[in-house]
C-alpha cells in the first residue's frame, strides 16, 4: 500500500514536470496561448534549464553559503522568537493584571502585517542576517506566545493542586508544572513556528540583503532570469521540506510522553 502510494506520488511529480516541459519548450507543441513560441518559456521557465541552474549551483558549491545564511537566520529567528514567546507567555499567563493591561497592545501588534517592519529592521540592524532574524522573530513570537499563554491558562487545576499537596512552592510549580506544560505547547506549534521563521528569513533577504536564497531570487528577478527565479523557489521548497522533516523527528523524540492515537495500553 505504502509502496504503491510512493509510486503514484513519483508518477504525479514526473507528470507535472513533463507537462511543464512540454508546455514551455519552444516548438515542441504548436503555441496555443501566445503567438510567439518563446513566450511561454519567458513567463514560466523551462524545467530542463532550471535543473541545470540547480545542478550548477550545487556542483560549483555556489549555493552553500546562501543556504547556510538562510538556515542560520531561520534557526536564530526560531530560537529567539520561541524563547521570548515562552517567557512572556508564561509571565502574562500567570499575572492577570499584566495580561489585561497589555491585551490590546498584543492584539494590535499581532494584527499588524509584520512585513512592513522589514525596512525598519534594516535601518536598525543593517543588511546582514540580524534584520532578517528580527523579522522572523516578530512572526514566530506571536505563534509561540499565544500557544504558551493558552497552555498556562489550561494547566489542569488538579495537577496543580496535586503538586501543591506534594509540597511544591510557587517557584517549583512554575518550574515543574507550568514550564513543562507550556513547553509542550511550544512543541505543538513547532511546525508553524519553524515555517514562519523561514518565511521571515526569506522575505527579509528578498527585501534587501547580500546573501541568502531570497537574495538569489531577487537578483535573478532584476535581470528577468525566470529560470534562476524558479530554481531558487525549488531549492527553497526542498529546503523547507527538509526542515519540516527535521522538526518531525525532533517532535517525536521530545514528546514521547504524549499519547498518540492507536497506541495500546498495557492492562494489569
Amino acid at each position: 500500500m505504502r509502496k504503491r502510494l510512493w509510486f503514484w506520488q513519483v508518477v504525479l511529480l514526473v507528470a507535472l514536470f513533463g507537462f511543464w516541459h512540454v508546455a514551455t519548450h519552444p516548438d515542441l507543441i504548436p503555441p496555443f496561448v501566445w503567438d510567439n513560441p518563446n513566450r511561454a518559456a519567458f513567463f514560466f521557465g523551462e524545467p530542463v534549464k532550471i535543473a541545470k541552474v540547480i545542478a550548477d549551483w550545487f556542483a560549483s558549491g555556489e549555493i552553500y553559503p546562501h543556504l547556510w545564511v538562510t538556515l542560520q537566520e531561520t534557526a536564530l529567528a526560531f530560537v529567539i522568537g520561541s524563547a521570548l514567546g515562552l517567557v512572556i507567555g508564561l509571565w502574562l499567563g500567570l499575572t492577570p493584571f499584566a495580561s489585561a493591561l497589555l491585551d490590546p497592545y498584543i492584539k494590535a501588534m499581532n494584527a499588524m502585517p509584520r512585513v512592513v517592519l522589514a525596512p525598519i529592521f534594516m535601518v536598525w540592524f543593517g543588511l546582514g542576517i540580524w534584520s532578517k532574524v528580527a523579522l522572523g522573530v516578530t512572526l514566530v513570537f506571536f505563534i509561540v506566545f499565544f500557544n504558551v499563554y493558552q497552555g498556562v491558562k489550561e494547566v489542569s487545576p488538579v495537577v496543580l493542586n496535586n503538586a501543591t499537596m506534594l509540597g511544591a512552592t510557587r517557584r517549583q510549580l512554575l518550574r515543574f508544572v507550568y514550564l513543562p506544560s507550556a513547553t509542550s505547547w511550544v512543541f505543538s506549534s513547532l511546525h508553524t513556528s519553524v515555517g514562519m521563521a523561514f518565511v521571515g528569513a526569506v522575505v527579509g533577504e528578498y527585501l534587501g540583503s547580500a546573501k541568502g536564497v531570497g537574495y538569489l531570487i531577487h537578483m535573478a528577478e532584476g535581470s528577468f532570469d525566470i529560470n534562476t527565479v524558479f530554481a531558487g523557489i525549488l531549492v527553497l521548497t526542498i529546503f523547507a521540506l527538509v526542515l519540516d522533516f527535521a522538526v518531525s523527528v525532533a517532535e517525536r523524540r521530545l514528546l514521547v510522553w504524549r499519547p498518540t492515537q492507536g497506541e495500546t495500553e498495557p492492562q494489569l
Binding site: 488538579v158 495537577v159 493542586n161 496535586n162 503538586a163 515543574f176
Partner: peptide, 14 residues
C-alpha cells in the same frame, strides 16, 4: 497530609 484526587492528577510529562 497527603491528598489523592478523584481526577487524573499525575504530571503527564513525567
Amino acid at each position: 497530609a497527603g491528598y489523592m484526587f478523584q481526577a487524573e492528577a499525575l504530571m503527564p510529562w513525567r
